[in-house]
Computed example of a mutant assay.
Amino acid sequence: MIVEAIASSTAQVLPTHTPTHVAPIPTVLPDVHYQVIGDSGARTLWVVFVIMAIASALFAGWSLKVAVSNRLYHVITTVITIIAAISYFAMATGQGVSVKTTVIHHHHEHGVPDTTTTIHRQVFWARYVDWLFTTPLLLLDLGILAGLSGAHILMAIIADVVMIVVGLMASFGTENTPQKWGNFAISMLAFLVVIWHLALNGRTAVRNVSQNVANFYMAIAGFTVVVWTAYPVVWGVTAGGHLSIDGEIIAYAILDVLAKVVFGAWLLVTHAKLPETNVELKGFWANGLNREGLLRLDEEEGA
C-alpha cells in the first residue's frame, strides 16, 4: 500500500515546452584573415636580390674603366643597386617585415550581435628604408645631369624624403581613417614637389648644357616620373585590399628593377656616348687630401 501510494504520487505529468517567438541567438565565430607572403612572392624577392647584386657588380666593374675624376655617375648608380640588393636580401630572409592588424566592425540588425573581421597583413618596411636612401640618389643623378643648382637639388631631395617617411606612416595607418589617407595625401603633395623640380627647373637648367643632353634628360626624367607614379598606384590598390602580398611584391619588384637597374644602365651607357655629361671632380674626390704647404712642426723645430 505504501509503495503504491509513493508510486502514484511521483507519477506526475512533466510540463511541456512552451513555444516562444524569440529567435535563437546565432553562434558568432571569429573571422580572422592572414595575408602573408607565398611561394611566388618569396621567389621574386630572391630573384630581384640576384638582379640587384649582378647589376652592382657590373656597374662597379664599369667604373674601373673610367678615370676616378669622372666616376660620379658610376659611384651613385652602383650605390643605389647595392642598397636595393641589401634590402631585398633582408626581405627574402624574413627581415624588415612587420604585421599590421586591422579590425573591421560589422553592425547587424534584428538582434543579431555585431561581428568583426580581423586582418593580419605583412608590411615590408625594409623597402621604405631602401627608398629612403636610393630615391635621393636617383634625384642626385638627375639633378647633376640637368645642371640643377644645389638649392633645387636639396629641395627636391627633402620633398622626396618627406614623401617616403610619410608614406611609411600611411602604410601602418588604420583602414579608412584620416590617419592613413591623410598621410597618403601629404606624401602625394611631396611627390608633386619632386615632379615640379624635375619637370620645370630641370628642363630649364638642362637647356644651358646642350641640345643632346637636354633630349636625353627629358627622356630619362620622363621615364622616371612615369615609373615613380606607378608606385602610389600600387600602394593604393594594396591599401584597398585588392592585391595579395605576392601581387604587391611582384609589382614593386618590377618597378624597382625599372627605376634602378634599367635607369642606371641607360644613364651610364648614354653618359659614355655624350662627353657633355661629364662631371670632372678633382681635388679631394680624385687625389685625397693635398698636404703640400702644411706646416710640419718637426721641420720648424729643426730650422
Rank of each mutant, 00 (worst) to 15 (best):
L289Q: 13
Y128Q: 05
F223G: 11
I195D: 04
T18E: 08
Q179Y: 04
G293Q: 01
Q179A: 05
I51R: 00
A7Q: 12
I245C: 13
D298L: 06
D39W: 11
I6K: 15
T238L: 09
R127H: 08
Y88N: 12
L243G: 09
M218T: 15
S69M: 01
L45A: 05
L168Y: 13
W235F: 11
V47A: 15
L274N: 03
V13E: 14
K282N: 02
Y217I: 12
P275H: 08
A251K: 05
Q95E: 04
L72F: 03
A7T: 10
Y73A: 01
T102D: 11
L200M: 15
L132Q: 13
L64G: 15
L198C: 10
A239M: 13
A84K: 04
H271C: 03
A55W: 01
Y34F: 11
A156W: 02
M188C: 09
H106Y: 10
V22A: 02
T101H: 08
A190H: 09
A214S: 14
S8N: 15
R127A: 15
K282H: 00
H21W: 06
K273I: 06
K260L: 09
A205D: 10
R121G: 03
S8Q: 13
L58W: 03
D141Y: 02
D160Q: 14
A205C: 10
L58F: 12
N176G: 03
V112Q: 03
T134D: 08
I82L: 15
V123R: 02
S210M: 02
A185R: 06
I76Q: 08
S40G: 04
W62Y: 14
L140G: 00
H152P: 00
M163G: 12
M155Q: 10
S210I: 11
D31T: 11
V123P: 00
W181E: 08
K100Y: 05
W266Q: 03
V213D: 03
T18M: 06
T270D: 07
H152T: 09
N287E: 05
G293C: 13
M188H: 10
G167D: 09
P26S: 08
G143W: 07
V97P: 04
F216R: 00
D298H: 08
F223L: 10
A170E: 01
I144N: 02
H21C: 05
Q211S: 12
H105N: 13
Q211F: 06
V234F: 07
T134N: 07
L281E: 00
T229Q: 03
T27N: 07
L154F: 13
G61N: 14
G222Q: 11
E4R: 14
P275M: 04
V22H: 01
N183D: 11
G222R: 09
V3C: 06
F184R: 10
K180N: 09
L200A: 15
E276T: 12
F191A: 12
L297P: 01
L294G: 03
F216W: 04
L45P: 01
K180L: 03
